[in-house]
């Protein structure tokens, strides 16, 4: 009896280990591609590979991955990271935001959410709404939905979702402002490529 269960467990483990061996690389590749597509949407046109140049910084005791976009000369154009709004209507909303070195938002995109179709999911389907984040910064923007006296539209029948996104992006900008020097310093030390050395 014990032997039979043991045999089943061994077989199942062998099956899982084999599958893991074959799928590990493709899964990493698929995740890299998905992130690449999302980064392409938020970052300005760039010449580097933001995922390769990624740096890790500490934020509230956890690692935060920051993806820089640079032009041909290695100059920093913008940096992107993921912000999580924990207070969506149903669960967390994952947001990718890109900020230019002077603290102005370049773009914002939702990468994952479980909001109500047709109501809260306007944060994904309402292009004008999400595009309204571009060009906003801490100084000239009231970071709240219009219902709360801010600059951002809410949707008919859905206030909680836009409110959560606005709050999270705002928190991201504050984080950037407070750590601007450290972030920019960390990104300044850019490995010099062979081509530039020759020049």
């Amino acid at each position: 009896m014990v032997l039979a269960l043991f045999a089943v467990a061994v077989l199942a483990t062998a099956l899982l280990a084999t599958t893991d061996m074959f799928t590990r690389a493709p899964i990493a590749e698929a995740q890299r591609k998905a992130l690449h597509q999302a980064l392409m949407q938020v970052l300005p046109e760039h010449a580097n590979d933001p995922q390769q140049d990624m740096i890790t910084v500490q934020r509230d005791g956890a690692d935060l991955k920051v993806y820089p976009a640079r032009d041909r000369h290695g100059r920093l154009l913008a940096l992107a990271w993921e912000e999580i709004a924990p207070d969506g209507y149903s669960g967390s909303i994952r947001i990718l935001m890109a900020v230019e070195p002077d603290g102005v938002l370049h773009a914002v995109r939702i990468t994952d959410h479980r909001e109500t179709p047709g109501l809260g999911d306007g944060i994904v389907h309402n292009q004008a709404w999400i595009d309204a984040f571009a060009g906003k910064d801490l100084q000239h923007t009231k970071w709240a939905v219009k219902k709360d006296g801010g600059d951002f539209d809410q949707f008919t029948g859905a206030t909680i979702t836009p409110r959560a996104v606005v709050r999270a992006v705002h928190a991201g900008l504050i984080f950037f402002a407070e750590n601007r020097e450290a972030l920019l310093n960390g990104l300044r030390r850019q490995p010099v490529t062979d081509k530039e050395q020759m020049q």
Partner: peptide, 28 residues
């Protein structure tokens, strides 16, 4: 009398396999 745990283990293994396969080749 141990068939149920055995079946569950077998089913769970195949679910995990399908989960990994979809993650790898049908990411969206």
């Amino acid at each position: 009398h141990v068939r149920i745990p055995a079946y569950i283990t077998i089913i769970a293994a195949f679910v995990t396999v399908v989960d990994m396969l979809m993650n790898a080749w049908m990411h969206q």
